[in-house]
């Protein structure tokens, strides 16, 4: 109970903080729109229509969730370090991993705003018909994908506790995940050796479930199960990683800048 409350309140306060920052708030709305616009223009140039356009719109929308998470997850702890709060988080009696999960969940939530913005942009600027076959399933799939992406961001954030330069790695993961998880390019069109990596990444399955529920057909539940399962695995890995990273940071004195 206490854990649910902790995650809930921390998530809410983090969301409040992030929506007040031009960098996290405004940019995480705009940045994916630049890519979405380019993608829409490319598909339009290629005379795509109907389902192909819808698929591109939904994919571009999910890109925003990941980009709001990947770039900020690695940066957030650097910010905490700079403002001297990272030490306070570690010094608290609550497990560090539990504090970071709501942090990255709040980023993914901000990303969900950008998902809506992208869909509206596609609808009203590019006239893409956003028809959703199974709205309830669609919403559930998006929610699960947000959680899974938050958990993937959690892994990145944890790494940056120990390594002060990890922020660069986080930003560098933005586009690879877009590409590998089949957000706009089908996984089957990627080289064969890349595909196993796609399958280990939860967004791949979340994206599949979102597409299935939007277009009808397929089995969104199977995708959701894989997505949640992988998210749980990330959580578990992150939990152990966090203990190890915090220990190492305490030995090497990397929690503070000074």
């Amino acid at each position: 109970m206490r854990i649910v409350r902790l995650i809930g309140i921390t998530w809410w306060l983090q969301l409040k903080m992030r929506s007040r920052s031009a960098f996290d708030g405004l940019l995480s709305l705009l940045w994916p729109l630049f890519f979405a616009t380019t993608i829409f223009l490319m598909f339009r140039q290629g005379n795509a229509a109907g389902p192909a356009m819808l698929s591109a719109a939904v994919g571009a929308a999910v890109m925003g969730i990941w980009s709001a998470t990947s770039t900020t997850a690695a940066f957030a702890l650097q910010m905490e370090r700079r403002q001297g709060t990272l030490e306070l988080l570690v010094a608290a009696p609550t497990s560090f991993a539990l504090l970071i999960v709501p942090l990255t969940l709040s980023m993914a939530t901000i990303g969900a705003y950008s998902m809506i913005a992208t869909l509206l942009w596609g609808r009203f600027v590019f006239g893409i018909h956003i028809t959703v076959d199974d709205p309830a399933m669609f919403v559930v799939s998006v929610a699960v994908t947000v959680i899974a992406i938050g958990m993937l961001g959690f892994l990145i954030a944890i790494a940056s506790v120990r390594y002060r330069t990890a922020w660069a790695l986080g930003s560098a993961l933005e586009m690879p995940v877009w590409l590998i998880c089949g957000l706009v390019v089908a996984v089957s069109s990627l080289p064969a050796w890349v595909r196993p990596i796609s399958w280990m990444l939860a967004p791949t399955w979340g994206m599949a479930a979102i597409r299935d529920s939007a277009q009808g057909g397929g089995n969104p539940l199977a995708g959701l199960a894989m997505c949640l399962g992988l998210a749980a695995v990330y959580g578990l890995i992150g939990w152990f990683l966090a203990r190890w990273m915090v220990h190492s940071a305490r030995v090497n004195a990397t929690l503070a800048l000074s």
Binding site: R2, R5, I9, T10, L13, K16, L88, A92, P93, T94
Partner: peptide
């Protein structure tokens, strides 16, 4: 106030 609420949560 929010700063205090946050840490109150962290300290259980």
């Amino acid at each position: 106030l929010d700063n205090l609420r946050y840490f109150a949560e962290l300290y259980g």
